[in-house]
Amino acid sequence: MFVVIRCVLGLLFVISGGEKLLSPTENFLYVIDSYQMLPRPLEQAVAVVFPWLEVMTGVFILSGLWLRQALATLLLISASLMVIVGQAIVRKLPLDNCGCFGELIHLPLRGVILVDLSVFVLALLCLFNIRKTARFSLDGFYAGQEKV
């Protein structure tokens, strides 16, 4: 079961980041700007870097290489997203869509908090059960080699 959860989490992040990477950067920049949290130059840096972070985290979780570190990164990302979306809800920002999956999936802010919370809890579960989660993974393969 943990392997399935791992694959779902990895795929989710690869798709989410991949959609942003394959779309013009300006679209995601606009999404970041809508949350009114960062100064413009930092928004531009985040618009470029964040999709790569999502994709790479997803790829490492899927392949199971550096799994512990990748899951920790995922925890950090989902916690940050909950804070960012939460402040938008509290400030009643006029956002009808979170923008987290680009134009692929449209989720209202309250819906995306639930998604982020689920991701956070699942990643935490995987981290606490790292041995089971690392089955059929590259980490598992290297661990097997080290035993031999």
């Binding site: 013009p24 300006e26 679209n27 920049l29 606009y30 700007d33 809508s34 413009r40 680009g102 134009e103």
Partner: peptide, 24 residues
């Protein structure tokens, strides 16, 4: 032209999404 969200503006051919970036 890979327009995916609105409003998307092309200012002298360069893409911007949202009114704030257009103004800037």
């Amino acid at each position: 032209l890979e327009v995916k969200s609105t409003p998307t503006f092309f200012v002298n051919g360069k893409r911007f999404v949202g009114g704030a970036f257009l103004e800037q």
